Deep mutational scan, measured.
Amino acid sequence: MVVWDEDGFQGRRHEFTAECPSVLELGFETVRSLKVLSGAWVGFEHAGFQGQQYILERGEYPSWDAWGGNTAYPAERLTSFRP
């Protein structure tokens, strides 16, 4: 999975191949867009795999509404991930 700290695949970029309990440890404040290259990941609103969670299947997510636009409580950012 590849993530960016700005919408539209802009800004700082990082690629994950294993779980990440906090993007803050990588110098990111948040993740605002992402691409899942294969498989599925779970993205969490807060560090430590806490808060609202989203199943992220293979594909592109250019902004928060692409992963959470249909929920009652959409998270505008993700800060931890698990494959």
Rank of each mutant, 00 (worst) to 15 (best):
A66E: 15
L37M: 10
S63Y: 05
T79D: 03
V36I: 09
D65Y: 08
W64V: 15
E19V: 04
T30V: 15
Y61E: 01
Y61A: 01
E25S: 10
Q50P: 02
S63T: 10
R77K: 10
C20V: 14
V3A: 07
R58I: 14
A47H: 06
R58V: 14
H14L: 14
H46M: 11
D7Y: 07
T71A: 12
Q10S: 09
S33A: 01
E6M: 07
Q53W: 10
G43S: 02
G39H: 05
W4Q: 01
F49I: 03
F28G: 02
N70M: 14
E25P: 15
E76F: 10
W64E: 07
Q53S: 14
F9P: 00
H46G: 12
T71F: 15
Y54E: 00
A40N: 06
V3C: 07
V3Y: 00
G59C: 01
V23R: 00
Y73G: 13
G51M: 00
G59S: 02
G8D: 15
E57P: 13
E15P: 00
W64S: 15
T17Y: 10
A66M: 09
G8Y: 07
P74T: 12
E6W: 03
E76V: 13
A18M: 14
S63M: 06
H46I: 08
P74M: 10
G68S: 11
S33D: 01
E76G: 13
E25V: 08
I55H: 12
P21N: 15
R58T: 11
R58E: 15
S63I: 03
L34T: 04
T17N: 14
Q52M: 13
L37F: 07
A18G: 14
L56S: 02
P62S: 14
R32W: 01
Y61K: 03
G59I: 03
A66F: 08
S63K: 11
V42E: 05
V3Q: 04
E25R: 07
E6L: 06
A72S: 12
L37P: 03
R58H: 05
N70T: 08
F9T: 00
A47P: 11
E19G: 12
A18I: 05
H14A: 09
A75K: 12
V42A: 05
E25M: 11
G51P: 02
W67M: 06
A72L: 13
G11V: 02
R12E: 04
Q10C: 09
A72M: 06
R32N: 03
L26H: 15
A66K: 08
W41G: 02
D65C: 08
P74H: 15
G39M: 04
Y61W: 04
E60L: 05
G27K: 07
F9Q: 01
L26S: 04
R13A: 07
A72I: 12
S63E: 06
N70I: 08
T17G: 08
Q10Y: 02
E19R: 05
T17P: 01
A47I: 11
H14K: 12
S63R: 11
A40P: 06
R12F: 02
R12A: 07
V42M: 10
H46V: 06
Y54R: 10
S33Q: 01
A18H: 15
R77P: 13
W41F: 09
E76P: 09
T79S: 06
E76W: 13
R77T: 10
H14I: 10
R32P: 01
G59Y: 01
L26I: 15
A72H: 11
W64Y: 14
T79R: 15
A40W: 04
G39V: 03
G43W: 00
V36D: 04
G8S: 11
G59F: 00
I55D: 13
S38W: 06
V42W: 05
E60A: 12
L34E: 00
S22V: 00
L24H: 15
L26W: 04
E25D: 13
V31R: 03
K35M: 05
T71E: 13
V42R: 05
